[in-house]
């Protein structure tokens, strides 16, 4: 820490940078936020790359390439607290949807080559699969209010609290008609961790699970059989489940061939 500021770095692995963009977008708060931080590196805001020690490292993106892997290990060595931000860092992102498919085949079908141009690791891993992660903030992208709460807790040395309730809880509180009960839609809200205030059901669209599963709790088998009973086909449900959470243990099991 320098003065009362904490030293932080914002590091990007493989992803769309949407989480950091969301942070930079909170223009009304940014000055106040940066008053609390001594930012040594911020991939999206400046191309400066330093390998300095930091109090807190914020990481977005999945571990997809050899370079991601090396950078991540270095970041871990250089930080006290490591925070994974967003679905890519927490669950591997939409790219991890390919879990279970052969990387060579994919390369062939997209680039018509079997050569590995990007030193692709063959799968898109979550940060926690590679190094120890202290905190994980889900979302695709993250909700900035949740980021601020986490940041404030980390600065104050308070153990942060993460939501462990599903989107359905937020639906109920807003008295949103349930898309499963009323219309038999394939909503993933019951197994998806809340925090978005049920954004999609509020607009009449089923939750596609962008915030990822409720850790250790999501009843994937229950969700699947519930939707089968509503008339959905198994493959249709699996395709939805894999979109944002292919690396959640029970979903990964369904994807094994």
């Amino acid at each position: 820490m320098t003065g009362n500021k904490i030293k932080v770095g914002f590091y990007s692995l493989t992803g769309c940078a949407g989480d950091f963009l969301n942070i930079l977008n909170m223009e009304d708060k940014l000055l106040e936020v940066f008053k609390l931080l001594d930012v040594v590196e911020f991939a999206l805001a400046s191309s400066k790359v330093v390998h300095e020690k930091v109090d807190v490292a914020f990481i977005e993106g999945s571990v997809t390439t050899q370079k991601d892997l090396e950078v991540l290990k270095k970041i871990r060595e250089n930080c006290n607290v490591l925070v994974a931000l967003g679905n890519c860092a927490v669950w591997g992102g939409v790219q991890a949807e390919l879990t279970g498919l052969d990387a060579k085949d994919l390369m062939k079908s997209v680039y018509n080559t079997t050569e590995n141009y990007y030193s692709f690791l063959g799968e898109h891993k979550a940060v926690s699969e590679v190094v120890k992660v202290d905190y994980e903030l889900p979302g695709c992208p993250i909700e900035v209010e949740e980021f601020l709460e986490l940041l404030i807790d980390v600065i104050r040395g308070v153990i942060p609290e993460f939501k462990d309730y599903p989107v359905c809880v937020e639906c109920k509180i807003r008295e949103i008609p349930c898309l499963i009960v009323e219309r038999g839609e394939a909503c993933l809200g019951p197994i998806t961790v809340g925090g978005c205030k049920a954004r999609c059901p509020y607009y009449n669209a089923p939750c596609i699970g962008c915030r990822g599963p409720v850790k250790e709790e999501a009843n994937v088998a229950g969700e699947l059989s519930m939707l089968l009973e509503k008339g959905w086909k198994k493959q249709e449900v699996i395709n939805r489940l894999r979109l944002f959470a292919a690396r959640y243990k029970d979903i990964a099991k369904l994807l094994e061939r």
Binding site: P166, C168, G222
Partner: peptide, 13 residues
């Protein structure tokens, strides 16, 4: 309880 998806709806309503 195998069928239950732990959505919490029954408590909230």
């Amino acid at each position: 309880s195998d069928k239950c998806v732990s959505c919490g709806s029954c408590n909230l309503v």
